[in-house]
Design a protein around this nucleic acid. Structure first.
Lengths: 122, 122
DNA sequence: AAATTTGGATTACAGTTGTAAACTATAAAT
DNA sequence: ATTTATAGTTTACAACTGTAATCCAAATTT
C-alpha cells in the first residue's frame, strides 16, 4: 500500500485553500492565507513549487501573466492516509484505544457518539 | 496552554519502550527495539540524548557501568497533546468531522461505537 | 521604445531529524 | 599493571523544512 507522498505542515496550509476553492492563482492563495496574518508571497511560491514537484499540485496557464494551481490529490484521500498514519503511529492501529483516549480527554462526548450512531444507521 | 515539547517519530519509538517498562538501560532499550529488525545502538544513543536535552527522559546511574533511563512525561499526557494537535491540524478541531472520516474509511464500525457507549455509561 | 512591475523559477540558508561514527573514561578481562 | 571492551558523550552529515531572497522574462506602464 504505497503511502501517499508526505505533505509537510506548511504545505498542508496551501493544500487546504486549494481544496476549498479547487483552483487558484498565486495571488488568490496568498490572499486566502493572509486573512489571519499576512504571509510572505515568496514563501508561498516555494511551497507551491515543492507541491508541484511532489505531484500534489499542477500548474496550468490561466492568462498571459498568471497560472492557476490545482490540487492533484483529493482532501478525502489525503485525510484517509493521514488518519491511518496517526492511528498506526500513536495507537498501533488500535481504534478502540484511540477513541477511549479522546473520550477521556473530553474531546468526544456521549452526545457525539449518539449522533454518530444515527448517521451510521442512515 | 504551553505545548509539550515536540517528540519526533524516531524519538517516539524510544519513549514507547520506556513507557512500557518504566525504566531501562541502553542495552535493554536496544534489545526491545531490535525485536523486529536490529537497530543501531549508536543511533539510539543519540535519540536518548536528545530526549534528555528536551527533558523528556532522565538518566540515573544504575551501577558502576550503566545508567537507567526513565520517562519524564507520561504516555497519557503525551497522547492527549498529540490528539489535540492532530485534531487541530487536520480537522480544525472538529471532532465530528474526524469521527465521520474514520467511519467512512471503515476504521470505526458500529460495534466499536456501541462498545464505547457502554464504557461511557460506566 | 524604454522603464517598471510582477509572476514564474531558482537558489539560499539555518534549524530539525534520522542515522551513525568518533572520542573518552572507566570497568572488566587478562 | 596492561589491554580491551563498552557506556556515556560529542561530533558529523545529508535530507528535509520553513522561510525568504534573487534572478529572469514577459506584460504593463510611462
Amino acid at each position: 500500500m504505497k503511502t501517499t507522498e508526505k505533505i509537510t505542515d506548511a504545505e498542508l496550509e496551501i493544500m487546504k485553500v486549494l481544496w476549498n476553492r479547487k483552483s487558484l492563482t498565486l495571488n488568490e492563495i496568498v490572499g486566502e492565507l493572509s486573512k489571519e496574518e499576512p504571509k510572505n508571497k515568496s514563501t508561498i511560491k516555494t511551497l507551491l513549487y515543492r507541491l508541484i514537484d511532489k505531484k500534489m499540485v499542477k500548474s496550468v496557464q490561466k492568462n498571459k501573466k498568471e497560472n492557476e494551481y490545482k490540487p492533484l490529490i483529493s482532501e478525502k484521500k489525503y485525510l484517509k492516509n493521514a488518519n491511518e498514519n496517526f492511528l498506526e503511529k500513536l495507537y498501533d492501529g488500535n481504534v478502540d484505544h484511540m477513541l477511549l483516549n479522546f473520550v477521556e480527554d473530553k474531546k468526544i462526548t456521549k452526545e457525539e457518539i449518539e449522533k454518530l450512531l444515527k448517521i451510521i444507521d442512515e
